[in-house]
Design a protein around this nucleic acid. Sequence first.
RNA 1: GCCAGCUUAGCUCAGCGGCAGAGCAACGGUUUUGUAAACCGUGGGUCGUCGGUUCAAUCCCGACAGCUGGCUCCA
Length: 617
Amino acid sequence: MENQEAEGTLEAAKTEVQRKSLDQREQMTDLMRLRHSCAHILATAVLRIWPDALLDIGPPTDEGYYYDFDLKSHRFSPEDFPRIEEEMRKVMKENQVFERVEKARDEARAYFEVRGQRYKTERLADIPEGETITFYQNGEFVDLCAGPHVMRTGNVKAFKLLKVASAYFRGNEKNPQLQRIYGTAFKTKDELETWLRMQEEAKKRDHRRIGAEMGLFAFDAEYVGPGLPLWLPKGTVLVEELERLAKETEFAAGYVRVRTPHLAKEKMYRTSGHLPYYAESMFAPMEFKEAEADEVATRYYLKAMNCPHHHRIFAAEPRSYRDLPLRMAEYGTCYRYEQSGELFGLMRVRSMQMNDAHIYLTPEQFTAEFNAVNDMYLKYFKIFGLDRYLMRFSTHDPSRLGQKFVNEPELWKKTEDMVRDVLKSSGINYVEVPNEAAFYGPKIDVQVWSAIGREFTIATNQVDFAVPARFGLVYRDRDNTDKTPLCIHRAPLGTHERFIGFLIEHYAGNFPLWLAPEQVRVLTIGEEAPLTEYAQSIVAELRAHQVRAEADLGNNPIKAKIQDAEVARVHTMLVVGGRDLAAGQVSVRLHSKGPQGARPRAEAIAQIVEAIRDRGS
RNA sequence: GCCAGCUUAGCUCAGCGGCAGAGCAACGGUUUUGUAAACCGUGGGUCGUCGGUUCAAUCCCGACAGCUGGCUCCA
């Protein structure tokens, strides 16, 4: 499984279609139009304050808009916002008309060249011959722009500048870095306020915040290293429950489990073909001489993916067509040296454990097997109540065969057709993205959106018809000849790190019973010995059933104990006082759902045990 | 890796060129309880690290580290 993640590529796909036709632009929503106009107002204000700013572009986004500037004389910081916003308000008060002007190409080029607006000159060159070139003008501000806009600057009434950032011109690292200002705008002040409030709420669901509150994981950059998460006991519960789910599911689907070391010799990654492309993303190798007499040092790499090890397991024994499909699973730990600026909580880390498996099969087995993998994805999505997802089907670009993609035109076509058929026939929500495949075959990445709107590639599913051959993997076929198997890489639960990061935000830390780090807490009202013993015996019985149960026997008032348990997001609270002891019952309370009434002790315990087994809510 | 911002007690955050602060948490005691915070007390800090300016630096300046927001990357 090569890529833990692939966010950003959809962005690339969007850029492909960024040159929208004028018809498409006409369909821009009112809100987009408003935001786009606000971006122009932002640029108007910036130019008034810093007349030497060079302009790039200022499109609307899902959240608002931005405008990119090249400004040598000043570095934007949030401290500039009040000043810029004030100038923007002036522009709005002036109520300038947004006026559309068509220009001939030469005229447009001359306009920007005279003003030294070199980014605009380049943008102008992007516009295909024959397309109408339009400028929009408001007051003194003129911009190359296809529009559309609102009528007047005064139409924008609710806006706010949000953050400064940098961005490479055309998104290319080799180009100059521009200063970007992000802002947002809404039709009404109320809508803006509501959105800002929602942003605040979203912060509370941030997995980093909840992870710290609940004691799930920690980072120790000083002693362990950046991007290397430590799983605390409560987070480890999540990890192990997910592993249990995966093991049960895979066992039922006919997988076998393997275990492999965390490192391998350089030869492994030379053979797999990863090293030339991937070395930068791997931790630097360990190098040493195995024996005094060795002339040359041996290099070991921490593994960045599990497939080569699995391939060697395939090669460890002779294989017959009767052994296929061979489904080899491992929650393998991988290490990737992600660039420092890319690290992001649990979502982007340098050590990760993957829900990996490699399925070795014959071409005839492909459709059935790929379908089965797909079904497993859907099964998981259902368990986690994941309904907002998109499968991104990445295919090759025939013009880059032999470079970016292995030169097997027929295999490419055949496997892509097979994958497409499966996706179509299962009625799954998917998009096809050309030129994004792995070098060894087409892939499907599963995109999900967390509750706070973050988009992630959470899982991946790839077809590999190249690497098994590089390792010389063969099986003896019916006709007594050796043949190279196909391989499906799949990781429906992605990596623990990212998947749990996602689940934390998905559930806002309020995990379903089967996942909850603390499933049950027994709270006593009073400290009399018989009551304490009653509570302890309930906890003991629950634990005997493998339920994660704790007791709060302290001397705090019951209100305080409930407060503590609610804040700790304990799934089920069993309140016991004198009445309950006398009746052999417990008073059930569910996290953020309130009291559920009293029931006999045995019944309550049986219910809990059953609910955990069913992996329900 | 690049641009910008941030870094003060376990957590959330005040503060300021001149003795380091609050709330929550922790700990000790009092209270003995019926569904989201009882009361009293105690401890807790190299103000990220290193260097500079200054009579004096948590505060000003610089470098570094980490984190955050973006960008880039993610086979």
